[in-house]
């Protein structure tokens, strides 16, 4: 069974009198340990799909199962608990909390989990070491470069050892050299830590780093020229 199953998901929203449907009955399966890149034109709905899988948006119809939980049926509160335990989110604009140090930002997701202070400290140190930012632990976001901020963002996403790490245009606001560092870091997260990774990008070169490349075209998901399907068979 796949780790993530997206089953016939449609997402619609109103824009004035017009109804926009970025996702039109898409299905997709992601196995444990996969590294997927999701590409497509601007406004094609790739971030929408990522947000649905991350549980921060609601599908209009269809189902999304992650690690055996049908997240489309969870209440807002339960969905928040589920995200804390299962999702690591890397934002395009880093979105670190400006009043917290790098260390405190990375620690933030762990405050929501039942864990001792010593265990938290240990996990934060490991995550900071993984992104090679131990020396910057006490720095505030304003004291760091964009690349360093994004590394802290990645450390924050992996620190709770989530089921899936989702990254929404993680290199979108970085220069070439820093983009390369971040892409290498994401590959390490997948290769060395074995975390399942779903990355949205509009950069074809970045997308090629992933093990699987999927394109979103006119509301449909395409992989190697064919429309993707879910391996999770359901009876209606």
């Amino acid at each position: 069974m796949s780790l993530v199953d997206v089953l016939n998901v449609t997402k619609e929203y109103a824009n004035g009198e017009e109804t926009i449907r970025p996702l039109d009955g898409v299905s997709l399966s992601i196995d444990e340990g996969d590294y997927l890149s999701l590409m497509g034109a601007s406004g094609s709905g790739k971030s929408t799909l990522l947000n649905l899988i991350a549980g921060i948006d609601q599908a209009t119809s269809g189902e999304i199962n992650v690690a055996g939980t049908e997240i489309t049926k969870l209440s807002r509160g339960k969905l928040a608990d589920w995200r804390a335990a299962h999702i690591g989110y890397v934002f395009q604009t880093h979105n670190l909390i400006p009043v917290l140090t790098a260390y405190e930002n990375v620690e933030l997701p762990l405050l929501l989990l039942p864990m001792s202070a010593a265990e938290r400290r240990k996990r934060v140190e490991i995550a900071m070491e993984a992104v090679d930012l131990t020396s910057r632990a006490s720095h505030y976001p304003r004291q760091m470069s964009g690349g360093q901020e994004q590394r802290v963002g990645i450390a924050r996403a992996i620190v709770a050892n989530p089921t899936v790490v989702v990254a929404d245009e993680p290199t979108g606001s970085l220069d070439d050299e820093t983009t390369e560092q971040i892409l290498q870091l994401l590959s390490r997260v997948n290769d060395e830590l074995g975390m399942t990774l779903l990355m949205v990008t509009h950069d074809a070169d970045a997308g090629k780093r992933a093990k699987r490349q999927i394109r979103l075209e006119r509301g449909r998901l395409m992989e190697n020229g064919n429309e993707t399907t879910s391996t999770h068979l359901r009876t209606a």
């Binding site: 991350a54 921060i56 807002r76 509160g77 928040a80 608990d81 995200r83 804390a84 335990a85 999702i87 989110y89 934002f91 979105n95 909390i97 400006p98 933030l108 997701p109 929501l112 924050r156």
Partner: peptide
Amino acid sequence: IKEHAVLQTLGLRPLR
């Protein structure tokens, strides 16, 4: 507004 959205993305319940 954005910061609270980030916190909720990380897993803070709305009540929290």
